[in-house]
Structure formats: C-alpha cells, structure tokens
Design a protein around this nucleic acid. Structure first.
Lengths: 176, 176
DNA sequence: ATAGTTGCAAAGGCTTTGCGTGCTT
DNA sequence: AAGCACGCAAAGCCTTTGCAACTAT
C-alpha cells in the first residue's frame, strides 16, 4: 500500500472547514466536472476519510455528524453519481445493503472473516495476471471484477501466519 | 460440462409426471431430509433443468408454465431453504435480483459480457490454487468465494480465441 | 395426528423519484 | 439567469411474513 497517508489532518486550521483543503475525493469530483455543492463536498470528505466500506446509511450518519445539512436522498444520489463517474465502487458483502469503496485506492480485493465480519484487504499480482489471462482466453477485455473470499480463521494456519508477519497488510474490522 | 444431459425426456411416459423420475435437485432435497411437496418437486425440476442462472421471477414463470400450482412466495421460500441446505447458491450479477445456481455443478465462476449480458462459466485450477494460498497467507481457511469478471468482447482477442477454440467451453446467453 | 407448508395479501427494507425551493456556475 | 441539486415524502422494487387452510410423514 503506497498511497496510504495518515487520516489525521496535520494542516494548520483554515477559515472555512468546507473550502479549506479539497479532499482526495473532492478533487476527483472536480476533475470529472461535477458541480460542487456543500453536500457533495461533505460526502466527498466522509468518503476520503473512510478506511472501511460504509453503506449509505453509515455515510449518512457520518455526514450529519460533521454537518447535518444532508438528506439521505442526497447521499443516495451522490453515491450513485460517483459510481457512474468511476470515483466509487459499489460492493456487495451480503446483507442487502450496498457498500462503497473509493476507486482510487488501487485494485484490491476482500477476505471476509465469516465469524467476526472482519474485512481484510489484499492485493495480489499473480491473481491480477491470471484473471486477465482468463478473460483473454474467452476473447474479453476485463472491465471490472469482483473477488471476495469468505473464510474462517484456522488456528494452525494462523500460527504460521504469525511467524511470517513482517510487512503487515491492511486489516480492519468492518461493520455488517 | 460432463453432467449435461438433454433436457428432453426420452423416458417412456409414466403414470404420474410428478413422481416419475426424481430430478437431480429433488434427490438432493430428499437426502437433506426435506419434506417433499408438489411445489418443491416442481421447483426442483425447474432448477434441475435450468442451464442458466434464473432469478426468482424466472423460476416462478417456468414453474407455473409446467404446473401453475405455485405462488411466488413459495418460490422465494424454497429457494431460501435450498440455499441454506447448500443445494443452491445465490449470485448477484447486478440488477437487484438474486440469481440462483445449483451447487452440484462443481466449482465454477462467471465471466459476464457487459454489453450483451451473456454469462460464460469457467473453471480454472490455477486460480483455485491461488486463492487457497491467499487465504492461507492470512491464516484463513476458505469457506466460500465469489469471483465475477465483467468484460467486453475485444475484436483482437476474439480473433485469437477463435483460432484456439477446440475444447468449446460452456457459454450461454443469460437474461438481464 | 402433527409439524411443517402453502397462498394471499400486507408489510418491510433499501433505493429511487416527483416536485417545489434553493444554490452553483 | 439557467440549470442543476436538495429536501421531503411518496412510490418502487425485491423479498419476507402473519395467518388460516392444507398436507406429507
């Protein structure tokens, strides 16, 4: 993970928190030529700060916690817009609701612990190569993909993992 | 596809079409100790004959075409039951509805043509090995997985594919 | 006979939408 | 100024469920 930068804002306080520092996602919105309203800036900020995979209701909760000037309909509309613009990716980890994942964090997939709901993100070059070649095998160019692994922590394997743990990969508990 | 047997019934007509020949899925239901009603037999039959990935409404349509003694609520209930029993797998190819896939057809994944909706099923040993090892890497035993590739037919690649086409893989047009 | 199943219609959860008002460009 | 975005509440999907009648074991 090369793009990871601490969430904490080290920048000195500015006059208007809304216009202070265009967040990662806000910048993308502007690039794509979206009209930036206060609500969109707010949602963009929540998304930029999110390190998990929130659903619409969770985004809504976080947004109103910051500002309280959004309706859930707008969150739905915005999230759909951003998905169409390729800024957000919609995921389905089961449970009915869609979850959202900023698309600028690079290609990654999910390993879900079926006991605890913990979501581990991972990347794998070999896998990437392989699916490209599978698609090509059928004459297709890959446009999108979805890979989710659901598993259970295995004591034996976990011990083995503990040993080789050195470059700690991202791993965080996600709701569900 | 080794298990594929023609849909047409070549067997000599029996007394009761309902009890005649327990279908593949029906047999599984019985093994799991499910109480077999006419409706369940009917749905089991539709599922056994399906070579695509129908959603509930499609199952319902096919079922009433055969017999017309089912309600859609029962289809929903049955499909959920069979999923819990591990007889059916629920898929989400986008579009809101869940699609169903008999679990006894072996491990396979899907490549979806985003232009036409065509669904290609494929298997890949190397992939299977790889994801096992990815899960193990994090100390997990794989319990379930979901892999869907969405792509667009690429003229250049398609030409290449046409050449090497010898062992024709399964490929069928699916609704949506 | 009994526990489980079905149909029907109503309810539920998530998401979208119509409409009048308000704000960005 | 003009068009697009917002909020609100109503409506739309897909799916589940309460209840009374029915059926497989």
């Amino acid at each position: 993970m090369d793009h990871a930068s601490p969430t904490s804002a080290k920048a000195p306080p500015r006059k208007d928190p809304q216009k202070a520092d265009p967040t990662r996602i806000e910048r993308l919105c502007i690039e794509r030529g979206l009209k930036m309203t206060g609500q969109r800036r707010l949602i963009a900020r929540v998304l930029s700060e999110a390190e998990d995979h929130p659903d619409v209701e969770e985004l809504y909760r976080r947004a109103i916690a910051l500002d309280s000037k959004v309706s859930i309909a707008t969150v739905y509309r915005t999230v759909r817009l951003l998905e169409e613009k390729g800024i957000l990716e919609r995921r389905d980890f089961g449970g009915g609701r869609s979850r959202y994942d900023p698309a600028d964090r690079g290609q990654h997939h999910h390993l879900i612990d079926i006991e605890t709901g913990t979501v581990i993100e991972f990347e794998d070059e070999e896998y990437e190569r392989l699916v490209q070649s599978i698609a090509a095998r059928y004459g297709f160019t890959l446009v999108q993909q979805r890979l989710e692994l659901f598993g259970r922590k295995d004591p034996a394997l976990a011990a083995a993992e503990a040993k080789r743990r050195s470059a700690a990969p991202a791993s965080k508990k996600d709701g569900e």
